[in-house]
Amino acid sequence: MQTNLQSAGGNDQLIKKKLSYTFNQLGMVIILVLLSVGMAIFAPHFLEMSNMLNIFKQVSITAILAAGMTLVILTGGIDLSVGSTVALSGVISVLITNAGVNPIIAMLVGAAIGLAAGAINGYLTAVPKLPSFIVTLGSMTYLRGLALVISGGYPLVLTNETFKFIGAGKILGIPTPIYITTLVYIIMFFVLKYTMFGRHVYAVGGNEEAARLTGIKVERTLIKVYSISGLLAGIAGVVLAGRLFSGQPTAGIMAELDAIAAVILGGTSFVGGFGRIQGTIIGVLIIAVLNNGLTLLNVDSYWQKVIMGGVIVAAVLLDRIRNRRRR
């Protein structure tokens, strides 16, 4: 009897130990499940297949941005420029498509513009060591400005069918953006876990000084991180233009904030070095379910914002409290 009790206790401790590693994500998974159940009960159409696909399609832009944002936040930085990059990439790729450039090439140009914008952010953050907040606040503004200048402030209508396919098409009944998002996350998971670059991202985020003294090329790592974030924003811009049938200079306004919220909800810490891409998926889904559910429930769109903000703060707070209690 006595030994039985003891071994039960030991088991319990083992489980606790395992849980402590996944706690952050687990807490958020619970919140996601509760939210979904709540929506399923109160919003009758929530669980329908078409609505589910809709959720994923709508959230794909935020999701793609959040994948890059996870990298940036893991290094202890922030990228405020991704929303503006979405606009610039969309505007330019549509503009040149309409001017007769091959749509595939135009889309690649859109992505490349994001890559270039990100590389500039990365260079300024890594080499003259400007704070990423300031650097990307600046680029957020000038990229948006460029998008407005180039488009003259009006949406550019997209007529090319190939281009539209990337945002609005379907393969086997499933919207193209969902494939793209899934691919981005699989690659990102792999990069973070199985490449030297991925581990260097964690090292630089955990202790930049130690990383430098360990021979890690910190500058190069940071430039790559911001470039990837920019590249993904460029891709998101192309996808969004395809979905909206236009390149809009006002696209992606505040999109960076949704991405940041998703990353933080996913358990990645602003301190740098702590977090996982799997967590970001959960964060993205929480935002998606909330957005979609509130719309289905006919909540006024202004009130939706109030609720969204409140839920984000509450979720992070809850998680923090639960973590603190474990000590």
């Binding site: 581990r199 964690y202 090292a203 985020g205 955990g206 202790n207 000084e209 130690a210 990383a211 003294l213 740098g272 070095g273 702590f274």
Partner: peptide, 12 residues
């Protein structure tokens, strides 16, 4: 300050 990565495992 100069040696450890506080976020990583012993192995890494």
């Amino acid at each position: 300050e100069q040696g450890l990565f506080p976020n990583l495992s012993v192995q890494e």
